[in-house]
Nucleic acid binder design. Structure first.
Lengths: 228, 228
DNA sequence: GTTATATGATTGAGCGCTCGCTCAGTTCGA
DNA sequence: TCGAACTGAGCGAGCGCTCAATCATATAAC
């Protein structure tokens, strides 16, 4: 849904054979992901990308028309992989003890496995032209929405207390970002926590947070003097 | 404390007058922050920086020796400003209704004011040479430690239940990252929440989380089958 | 079955340009 | 008059991208 401007297929190519386009672009993306993670987008040359993908620069430019195109393909590929992994993981959610705990666990493990990719997105998203950047951001939002669905499903089954829509929305954001946090603060966190410990503590946090949050309305809870 | 390798003063300069060095470097940093936020580090040229700072390229290179130096100066300046703002804000914490709520509020407002700077750090930190990058990361950790202090102070006064040190540490990370989240997801969040609403909901989350977290030990809470 | 032909895929030397950085020279102030 | 502060034309290297030429293969002609 949402047939907005730019899809992968909209990136023009000189090559006719669509199967070949898909295969070569996969080579290009795979090579680029490795290089970008090691050197960053700007310090990686198109020549490096071409040779890592096993093709010539000339041929590279038959499949894309700009270096930026490659970054966009990379971002899309990462999000596709992320989205697939998360939905697939959330399907396994049902059979768990506490379904939300299982969902968090599966998601955090995806973040653990793909932490380099997550960091890459945080780093390089801003190097994209504006219209593509918002595409990437929409992808990010889609993953957050997966958690909105999980939470609302649980509320419907009375596994969680009913909460305002906007409160649920923010809780979903918190869950996705706390997953990312394991990626972009891993150098600090992995000294003190294993991924399993991290999952355990954060899960306990999120569960108490979701099941004890005071009722549907948060009006006049804590902060007095509303700084206008 | 910690007299590690690189301090600002260690970045060499050809100029003798230390006062002048400080003044000119302030010009350079101020100009660079603006340019980096608008164009990013890599797309900003040294010529642009020099002319935005009101000096010639030649002179620019009397005060630094590499473009990377500028990025480092920028990161240090932002962290210094952040750290100052947060400590100053936390001092005002005492007189509040619930001290933790006030601390969170003040911190989130700092993140709100400096959101462009925060995003800049997330973007460009990775462009730094490794040894400087870890300097920047240490700075990030220092800000997290401020919250560890706040939380431990409250626990000592029995305003919060006693919790394991590692649980407190992670809670502190969560608070700092949820502040950053307002910065790097502002484009999604500010459609649905004002900063005051964001603060209100997140505060309510964090408070219930801190006051209801089950006792000092989190052993055998939720997740069963430890995926080894 | 062999040769000619057309079409698409592939190559890589090299163009044009930009950028980080330098240095011979100038200005300024004591 | 001398040293410190400052200028900016220009060097050299590297980069994104192109294009004339080559290779591969499928089809056509005989």
């Amino acid at each position: 849904m949402a047939f907005k401007a730019t899809r992968i297929k909209d990136i023009p190519t000189q090559i006719k054979d669509q199967k070949l386009v898909a295969r070569r672009r996969r080579q290009i993306v795979d090579a680029s992901v490795e290089l970008f993670m090691a050197w960053g987008f700007h310090k990686t040359t198109t020549r490096q990308i071409a040779s890592a993908a096993g093709i010539s620069i000339g041929l590279l430019y038959e499949y894309i028309s700009t270096k930026d195109d490659i970054l966009f393909l990379v971002c899309e590929a990462i999000h596709a992989e992320m989205h697939a992994a998360v939905t697939e993981a959330l399907d396994r959610t049902e059979q768990g003890v506490h379904p939300l705990a299982v969902a968090i666990r599966e998601y955090f493990l995806v973040c653990h496995r793909m932490s380099d990719h997550i960091v890459l997105i945080y780093q390089e998203m801003h190097s994209l032209p504006a219209n593509w950047r918002s595409k990437v951001m929409e992808n990010e939002e889609k993953i957050t929405d997966l958690f909105v669905n999980v939470l609302e499903g649980l509320m419907r089954k009375n596994d969680l207390p009913e909460l305002e829509k906007r409160v649920v929305g923010l809780a979903a954001h918190n869950i996705s970002v706390l997953g990312h946090m394991w990626a972009f603060r891993r150098w600090m966190l992995s000294n003190r926590y294993t991924i399993e410990e991290y999952i355990k503590i954060q899960t306990s946090f999120i569960l108490t947070l979701m099941s004890n949050s005071q009722g549907p309305s948060l009006k006049d809870t804590i902060s007095e003097r509303e700084g206008k």
